[in-house]
Write a protein that binds this DNA or RNA. Structure first.
Length: 880
RNA sequence: GGGGGGUUAGCUCAGCUGGUUCAGAGCACCUGCCUUACAAGCAGGGGGUCACUGGUUCGAACCCAGUACUCCCCA
């Protein structure tokens, strides 16, 4: 069989993904004989396409789930998407616009029809992309947050929380997105630092020539001012008590009020109060019973209430009004300041604080258990540093604005009659009955449902519950179905820190509220994928590579390895394609190791001593490293686990083991290998494939099947994770010395320009039998002989390793000057070392305070070093 | 303004509850090699005042305080 010299990932990817999927290897069903291991995917936005963040996130999930499967768990990874109300609605509106249809011209029902069509056609592309990555999700379980059963659960939750008194409707200052035409939650507002103009405007004082100067960054709102506020202890304004200021241009009188909320230092110390357009002003307004004038329309234009500039956009108005105020002499001066301006996460529009009627969820009580479970470790955050952040948020939690002025989403089940009565229930018929008791003349036609939908997070906070049992809200935990009882609580959640509150906290809240149980035991928080300059990857910057292009270029395995090599939990990943290259190179290395082994010809010959020794060593090495890798996994140190795997394969297996057992060439012909060594090697390779599989599912499966003809279910992905046994530490330490001897000889060749083909003689003078004469040294250093000697060898290159002396007789005389310098340098180092050790041992405080083991260790170091110095001095003498 | 991180090699990061002359890994870099598994490779090598200042200690990259710079979250 001809095997190509470089690994071709595409072939394996096209072959094995469908194979795994069609054989049902990803599928999971409850099985009381097996322990479950469950992950629910953070549902990507249904409009989304795969980006680097998904790539990182989902690779980690796949690694965890594949390893769990190999460890014998019933592994279940539930995929799906969320309906992303704002983003999707925006896409649909845009699409309709292309067709010449305005949203306002069609009915809600028609709009939703278009939206569903859009979703069926384009939604879920991202799930197909995940398959390219190798994601071993149970696709039969794919869910969508707006599918009927899941939506019904959302409505059930709303009704339930309303009935419990946790949901209320009220006029509040919300973050208004004038482009999306909806309220957004606090978490969806991104504050960006901007240079703004701080404009100092003179307001005349009524019945006086005096005036008061206010400073504002938002002059277009002055028409909605209802007071001017100053600090009660500010002497500058003490004389204005009881007076009125006059708003320029519209000549409206507003009172001057006093409140110690005012910062005397900022601006002029006089604040224009605009209750409708600033949360602080709003609170001031409440306190001082000021009227509220809404000077803006929903889409960010100046409203009728403002009297002037009506219908002009808020930013255009800002320019115009400054100009007009200047012309009429009201502007004292203009400063440029830096301030933070809120932007909508979805539309990037400048957020407008706006008073509006919204639905809220009271958070204080309901969130308490969700804080406790994180603090007591029932839910672990990885890395732990996020616990502080989490606590801070949970202790200062605000009520959650859950209504959105959109159509795409679960419509709020609140019903109103024509007399201002409200009921909350599922159907219009129920509503009719309920309202009838309050309003006996009511007819059903006069009932209308709330126009708003619920925040998308208000459905995704149920995700870990409803993907398994959408009836759990109705029925309660005791009547939960088999799936939920078996898979829930899930094991790990892998997500980005930026949605710790948006989503993670709220899932915990919902989990505790509806099952009394947490939704997951561990939350692994990934970093953010940034570009090399540390900028967040974004479409607008165009600095994000397309993950599918990367897969095309480096193979899925290569990209997976590349992404995980350098991303410890919670650390941002400064992405660079060279990581993928490294991943691809690793895959190729594995491929070639396989080619070598596959090329061995098995013959009826005896094992060599070197092979016996190497096999014995690697057996323990693999065991040692597996133990380490398991430990890294247990601590969720993914990149460390990967790096340990990488080095085990590349360094230990390829560079040392395979070189040691590889048969020689004689007369240009590869010699055969004995059966025992061959099988041991294949066995090692298979174990390594298993260990590599979670990171590199495709190549490992491919090689697995190239090793031998396999039965249908004899797949690498279904193989068992290797078991651990006791590691012989002494054996491993000894081999480290062997490596050092070999490295020294290689170095010698390099320095003396001795060809690797030229055989060398090596003599060892030591009583350490474990190092002595190890055949692996002869093999790897290409020795003609390796013997013990008690004699000094004159004119030989000499070196010391671990208190053993070695001599290499050289044909060309060695350079005594160089040798001497080298020995002197080592001697110098050893003497310094000895001094530091002895300093400790003669230090009474050290001897009194340090642990006994430590003192023993220091004594051993002292002895060893004294011996070494002795040997070195002898060597020096023999040279001179 | 409040809270939380971070600062170790050119880059990305390890370094557990202070204890080998402790300063590490991968990549990058330099040198020599197309040695019949692999140049996507092999062998060897250089590289750091552990941000700064002070303190605690027999002993500090690690603990404490302050300074500088930086990132994130919240308002």
């Amino acid at each position: 069989m001809e095997i190509s010299k470089t690994y071709n990932p595409k072939e394996a990817e096209l072959k094995w993904y469908p194979y795994w999927m069609n054989k049902g290897f990803f599928a999971s069903k409850p099985n009381s004989n097996k322990k479950p291991y469950t992950i629910v995917i953070p549902p990507p936005n249904v409009t989304g396409v795969l980006h680097m963040g998904h790539m990182l996130n989902n690779t980690i999930q796949d690694v965890l789930i594949r390893r769990a499967r190999m460890l014998g768990y019933n592994a279940c990874w539930v995929p799906g998407t969320d309906h992303a109300s704002i983003a999707t609605e925006a896409k649909v509106v845009a699409l309709l616009k292309e067709k010449g249809i305005k949203k306002t011209d069609i009915s809600r029902e028609d709009f939703l029809k278009h939206a569903w069509e859009w979703k069926e056609k384009y939604g879920g592309i991202i799930l197909e992309q995940l398959k390219k990555l190798g994601a071993s999700c149970d696709w039969d379980r794919t869910k969508f947050t707006m599918q009927p059963e899941l939506s019904e659960a959302v409505i059930d939750v709303f009704i339930d929380l309303y009935n419990k008194g946790n949901i209320y409707r009220g006029v509040r200052m919300v973050n208004w997105d004038p482009v999306g035409l909806t309220a957004v939650s606090d978490e969806e507002v991104i504050y960006k630092e901007k240079d703004s103009q701080l404009i100092y405007i003179n307001y005349k004082i009524k019945d006086s020539d005096d005036f008061i100067t206010i400073a504002t960054t938002r002059p277009e709102t002055i028409m909605a001012d209802t007071a001017v506020c100053v600090h009660p202890e500010d002497e500058r304004y003490a004389h204005l008590k009881g007076k009125f200021a006059i708003i320029p241009l519209i000549n409206k009188e507003v009172p001057i009020i006093y409140d110690d909320y005012i910062d005397k230092e900022f601006g002029t110390g006089a604040l224009k109060v605009t209750p409708a357009h600033d949360i602080n002003d709003y609170n001031l307004g409440l306190k001082h019973q000021l009227p509220v004038i809404d000077g803006l329309t929903a889409d960010g234009k100046i409203s009728e209430a403002a009297q002037i500039y009506v219908g002009i956009d808020r930013f255009a108005c800002r320019k115009q009004i400054v100009k007009d105020l200047q012309e009429q002499g009201f502007v004292l001066k203009i400063d440029t300041i830096k301030n933070k301006v809120g932007h909508s996460e979805r539309t990037d529009a400048v957020i407008e604080p706006k008073l509006s009627m919204q639905w809220f969820l009271k958070m204080e009580k309901i969130s308490k258990p969700a804080l406790d479970v994180v603090l007591n470790g029932e839910v672990k955050l990885i890395p732990e540093k996020f616990i502080n952040t989490y606590r801070h948020w949970m202790e200062n939690v605000h009520d959650w604005c859950i209504s959105r002025q959109l159509w795409w989403g679960q419509r709020i089940p609140a019903w109103y009659d024509n007399k201002g009565n409200t009921v909350v229930c599922k159907t219009k018929e129920d509503a009719f009955e309920k309202l009838l008791s309050k309003n006996s003349e009511l007819s059903i036609e006069n009932i209308h449902q709330d126009e708003d939908v619920l925040d998308t997070w208000f459905s995704s906070w149920l995700w870990p519950l409803t993907v398994f049992d959408s009836n759990v809200i109705k029925n309660g935990w005791d009547k939960a179905n088999e799936d939920l009882k078996y898979y829930y609580p899930t094991n790990d959640l892998v997500t980005a820190p930026e949605i710790l509150f948006f989503w993670v906290a709220r899932m915990i809240i919902a989990g505790k509220e509806y099952t009394g149980r947490v939704p997951f035991n561990n939350v692994y928080l990934t970093g953010i994928v940034r570009d090399k300059q540390g900028r967040k990857m974004s479409k607008s910057l165009g600095n994000s590579p397309d993950p599918l292009d990367l897969i095309e270029k480096y193979g899925a395995d290569g990209v997976r390895v590349g992404m995980l090599l350098s991303s410890p939990a919670g650390n941002d990943l400064l992405f660079d394609e060279s990581y993928c290259e490294q991943g691809r190179n690793f895959a190729n290395k594995v491929w070639n190791a396989f080619r070598l082994i596959k090329g061995f010809e098995v013959g009826a010959i005896k094992q060599t001593e070197a092979q016996i020794s190497a096999i014995n060593w690697f057996d323990h090495k693999l065991n040692e490293q597996l133990n380490l890798i398991n430990d890294y996994y247990a601590k969720y140190r993914m990149s460390d686990a990967l790096m340990a795997t990488y080095k085990l394969v590349w360094d230990d297996f390829c560079a040392w083991y395979l070189e040691a057992i590889k048969p020689d060439f004689i007369d240009g012909k590869a010699q055969p290998i004995d059966k025992v060594s061959y099988e041991a090697t294949l066995n090692f390779l298979e174990k390594l494939l298993v260990i590599m599989h979670p990171w590199m599912p495709f190549i490992t499966e491919e090689i697995w099947h190239l090793i031998a003809e396999r039965a249908e279910k004899d797949c690498c992905m279904l193989a068992s994770w290797p078991a651990l046994k006791k590691t012989d530490e002494a054996l491993l330490n000894n081999f480290e010395v062997i490596k050092e001897v070999v490295a020294t000889l290689r170095n010698l060749r390099a320095q003396k320009q001795i060809s690797p083909k030229e055989k060398l003689q090596l003599f060892e003078n030591s009583n350490n039998e474990r190092i002595s004469l190890n055949p692996v040294v002869s093999k790897l250093a290409n020795l003609s002989s390796f013997e013990n000697t008690q004699q000094k060898t004159d004119g030989a290159f000499s070196f010391m390793i671990s208190n053993a002396e070695f001599y290499v007789p050289l044909v060309n005389n060695i350079n005594t000057v160089e040798e001497k310098a080298r020995i002197l340098k080592e001697l110098d180092y050893s003497k310094g070392f000895l001094k530091s050790v002895q300093a400790k041992l003669t230090n009474e405080k050290f001897v009194n305070n340090a642990k006994p083991e430590l003192i023993e260790l220091e004594k051993k170091k002292e002895n060893d070093t004294i011996q070494k110095i002795q040997t070195l001095e002898n060597q020096l003498k023999s040279i001179t």
